[in-house]
């Protein structure tokens, strides 16, 4: 009888505690929902107070402003376009589409303009040495990482290290572009570096672009190394990459090839980095 009583008391305590916890959790959820609701009712500030401008238009204007600043705000035509874009956004019609078009046009003006830098021999060579990455996807699939602990997909991943070695089967397996190998030692090294870059970007795009946007992180550091940039210049490299993120990764699904070419172009156009980052040959 006494045991039953103890059991019931214990059960009641448990039920009370459980009910309390559920009540608190429900209360928290309720508060969160209220806050979400309140937030949704908050009008947007300044420029956007009179209308809901599209995020893409805001981004476009922001990008144009950033580009203009990067070029020293000297391009008056671009500055005019940015101002027109702002006015379109502020207009009673809240013309987001026009604002976006004008901002994009301003950005495109900078695309035609060279960055204020000397064209170094390294940069020049880089721009000519564009390689095809058509084989990359094949290589990536073939050399895919193991899925799950202790469970691999492809035993031939063992040979990835060789990549551009003289072993015909391996070279074929990795499908390295042959145009840049030329069979020479330096050619093979270049091909190996290229292969490393392409594979790294293709396999880690999501994490790499995250680090690029933040201007810091291990993936970005690794990319700097792959571009041959010594630790001493990483600060400059990461800042440059972050500032130009929208040029490097222009669309939500930019290919590895696009990202690499944009990075190479960016580094080549930087007077300091073009001479310090030696992997771009």
């Amino acid at each position: 009888m006494t045991d039953h009583l103890i059991l019931k008391v214990v059960l009641l305590i448990f039920l009370f505690y459980g009910s309390l916890a559920v009540a608190i959790a429900l209360d928290e959820i309720d508060q969160d929902l209220n806050e979400i609701e309140n937030h949704q009712n908050i009008p947007v500030e300044s420029v956007e107070t009179e209308c809901q401008m599209s995020p893409s238009a805001i981004n476009a204007i922001n990008s144009a402003v950033a580009e203009s600043a990067r070029y020293g705000n000297t391009n008056t035509e671009a500055l005019d376009l940015i101002e027109q874009a702002r006015q379109a956004a502020r207009s009673p019609e809240c013309d987001s589409v026009r604002a976006e078009i004008l901002a994009d046009k301003a950005v495109s003006l900078f695309g035609e303009e060279e960055l204020p830098t000397d064209e170094s021999p390294v940069a020049s060579k880089s721009s000519k040495n564009k390689t095809s990455s058509t084989c990359l996807n094949v290589a990536s699939e073939t050399l895919g990482a193991p899925s799950g602990a202790g469970v691999g997909r492809d035993p031939f991943t063992f040979l990835i290290v060789l990549s551009t070695s003289a072993v015909a089967t391996v070279t074929s397996l990795l499908c390295i572009p042959t145009a840049i190998t030329e069979g020479s030692s330096s050619g093979e090294k270049t091909a190996y570096h290229k292969f490393q870059q392409y594979r790294f970007v293709a396999e880690s795009t999501g994490y790499l672009v995250r680090d690029m946007a933040r201007g810091s992180g291990e993936y970005l550091t690794a990319m700097a190394y792959l571009q041959g940039c010594r630790t001493e210049v990483h600060d400059r490299y990461t800042k440059l990459v972050q500032r130009n993120f929208s040029r490097i990764f222009p669309q939500s699904e930019s290919s590895a090839e696009t990202v690499i070419l944009n990075l190479e172009k960016l580094v080549a156009q930087d007077r300091f980095l073009s001479s310090e980052c030696h992997a771009i040959t």
């Binding site: 893409s56 999501g206 810091s216 929208s246 990764f249 939500s252």
Partner: peptide
């Protein structure tokens, strides 16, 4: 964002927004 186009676009917008903010190394 691995599969959904809308999510990819959303992430891309956030990345662009982030690139316009200061470098702020919180977790390394």
């Amino acid at each position: 964002a691995n599969s959904d186009e809308h999510e990819k676009s959303k992430l891309h917008n956030l990345l662009i927004l982030r690139s316009q903010l200061p470098i702020h190394n919180q977790t390394v």
